[in-house]
Design a protein around this nucleic acid. Structure first.
Lengths: 164, 164
DNA sequence: TATTGTTATACTCTATAACTATA
DNA sequence: TATAGTTATAGAGTATAACAATA
């Protein structure tokens, strides 16, 4: 902001900033491309949307079922949306609301046998699509990527070091 | 599918498949977390949505403007959506439709001076958010990630090698 | 006839807020 | 009073298809 001339560090910092932006755009487009493909195939081949698939995936890991509130937290969407997705899945008899002994306000949502079976075939297809779409990367590269992303996963960003 | 026992290769392939799935889930959640943060900050601090920001970003790179069709291709959405986004931005006088000499069906959309100024401050903030959100990765790690993602960018997946 | 862009429609996902029933 | 879940509403983004104007 002052009138003093650029130092090497400042030039370098600007270059790093642009590099971060380019990295982000590449990260976003690669991820979006894969996600869109998955979304489209789930719709075409199984007539299901990604949020519905994700909700079923949550339930599949929890045979005892999950409360609406827990589903809302795990899927990071507000309660009303969970109600609507569960309504749809229940209409197709893929999930079921089950009374919760001890609290008559709440209940456990779980997969029906038909839901479990349907999810199983979808999950197999889903995994094979992922394998296919990530196949440009060799196993070792995938491991590298996995490690790098671990740092980004939590969102506990170290603060940006100011340029000296 | 046959009844023959697992070989080491098959066990290894299954492990790789699960590793790919875990990698995908991590890639998706890291990207989504950053994207949601950006989306939220753009809305809170500038009252703009991501698609609108993206459309302005496309125009900023093309001082001569872009046709609706070209915007549609670049943003990978169908024409009707571009019409609606441009309508909104034009109502706020951030972009303008300009008659195209030589083809009276088409016109060039470009940023207005106000749009250019507004985009400029948004872009500066946007870039600093990206730098912040990617800061858990050191510069060198960001370069590594950038290289790895190059392989995924195009979507030209080599086919999955069948298990021998 | 083909292309550019608009309009109309419908659907999904999303958030917010008011609401009911139970704790 | 607080919590679990529902309902109602509104808004954004998306696709599809029919349409008008121009090439």
């Amino acid at each position: 902001m002052s009138g003093r001339p650029d130092t090497d560090m400042e030039v370098r910092a600007h270059a790093d900033h642009h590099a971060s932006l380019r990295l982000w755009l590449r990260l976003l487009s690669a991820t979006t491309r894969i996600e869109d493909t998955i979304r489209q195939r789930l719709r075409e081949q199984f007539g299901i949307t990604l949020p519905r698939f994700d909700l079923m995936a949550q339930l599949e890991r929890e045979p005892k079922g999950l409360s609406m509130g827990e589903l809302s937290r795990r899927m990071m969407v507000t309660g009303g949306n969970v109600t609507s997705i569960v309504d749809q899945l229940e209409k197709e008899q893929l999930v079921q609301r089950q009374p919760q002994p001890g609290d008559r306000r709440a209940y456990a949502v779980h997969l029906t046998p038909a839901g479990r079976e349907a999810f199983s075939s979808m999950a197999i297809a889903h995994e094979s699509w992922i394998v296919e779409l990530l196949s440009p990367l060799a196993t070792q590269q995938q491991e590298q990527l996995f490690q790098l992303l671990a740092t980004l996963k939590t969102g506990k960003a170290s603060s940006v070091k100011p340029v000296q």
